[in-house]
């Protein structure tokens, strides 16, 4: 559905994205993850026909974004980061205008459908200027869905919403993902983890990783973190455990709870368990915790040389371009 090859965009001398290549299949929810200024919005704008790329190719719903821009725009629903609403129109008039602009047949009925889908039925005659942020976001989504597009591009769809609204919008996106191909950008990692089938991590205009959220975790987790908990007196456990080969970075937490990282490629858990039991302690818990997507994200986007097992070529390339203001952007 979305097919991108070598996409590059320059704003004057500044290169916003460079050589992006990725695909999204029909029915997929693709998460586009990256710090602010990474090039997410630029990429999305290119894909929905707002601006042409400097070089590279992109096809959306089977049409080229440069040569067949109008065809692409017919098939894409787009919600920009700042939801573009006319404050002096009512919700109904706004959606009707968008429906007309997109030549939706039986526009009135379609508008009513969407008002219902997004729980806006009772606000149809409110002026947009009087709506709360959450409601505006929903109107923006309604606008993107008005022509039942094959591809839905959502730029930070949950930004500025309260937790209840966030959950609501995420559920809605998951629901929509059954019929539409969705690409959404976010810098909230748990969101990508919850909603997306596949995640693309972008930093400084480069793709640094691409996989399902689960595989991304396991692939990049060369080292695993393990939690150990013993009952009763826990004096000396830390020394004991840290002597087991394959254990590193042991840290003590509350009440006899310890956390350590495994040396990549080794699983010292059986030895740790044996050592603790042989020494007479009560082993209550021993379980691995994967690196969270947050950790992976920071690993991939920070400007430090070689995180554990950097098997991404882009990554090493990226690490060479240390740039002060971009470091501060990540903070």
């Amino acid at each position: 559905m979305i097919h991108v090859e070598g996409l590059t965009k320059d704003y004057g001398p500044r290169r916003a994205i460079e050589g992006l290549t990725f695909n999204a299949d029909k029915g997929e929810i693709l998460g586009f993850l990256g710090p602010n200024g990474a090039g997410k919005t630029t990429t999305m704008r290119i894909l929905c026909g707002y601006m042409p790329p400097t070089s590279g190719k992109a096809r959306v719903a089977g049409f080229d974004v440069i040569d067949q821009s109008i065809e692409v725009r017919r098939r894409v629903g787009y919600m920009p980061e700042t939801v573009p609403l006319y404050p002096d129109l009512t919700v109904y008039d706004y959606l009707k205008f968008m429906a007309d602009l997109r030549r939706v047949p039986e526009a009135e009925e379609r508008v009513d459908q969407l008002l219902e889908l997004l729980h806006l039925e009772d606000r149809d005659l409110s002026y947009i200027s009087s709506l709360s942020k959450g409601l505006r976001q929903r109107v923006g989504l309604a606008q993107a869905l008005i022509h039942n597009p094959e591809v839905l591009i959502l730029d930070e769809p949950t930004i500025g919403l309260d937790p209840a609204q966030i959950i609501e919008v995420r559920n809605l996106i998951r629901e929509l993902g059954q019929q539409h191909t969705i690409m959404l950008s976010t810098h909230i990692l748990s969101e990508a983890q919850q909603v997306c089938n596949r995640v693309l991590i972008i930093n400084k205009g480069h793709i640094v990783a691409e996989d399902t959220p689960e595989r991304l975790q396991s692939r990049l987790t060369g080292a695993q973190r393990v939690i150990v908990q013993v009952g009763g007196d826990s004096d000396g456990v830390d020394i004991l455990v840290s002597q087991v080969p394959g254990v590193s970075k042991l840290s003590s937490q509350e009440d006899g709870k310890f956390e350590f990282e495994t040396v990549p490629g080794k699983d010292p858990r059986p030895e740790v368990a044996r050592a603790i039991i042989n020494a007479g302690y009560d082993l209550l818990d021993l379980h691995p915790i994967g690196l969270s997507l947050e950790d992976i994200f920071l690993q991939l986007t920070r400007d430090e040389p070689s995180p554990p097992e950097p098997n991404e070529e882009d990554l090493t390339e990226d690490d060479l371009e240390v740039n002060d203001d971009e470091v501060s952007e990540l903070m």
Binding site: I70, P84, M98, L101, R102
Partner: peptide, 14 residues
């Protein structure tokens, strides 16, 4: 200024 131009420029309108 309001960003609504994005709406019009991504609609199938020349």
């Amino acid at each position: 200024r309001m960003g609504t131009i994005e709406l019009l420029l991504t609609a199938p309108v020349k």
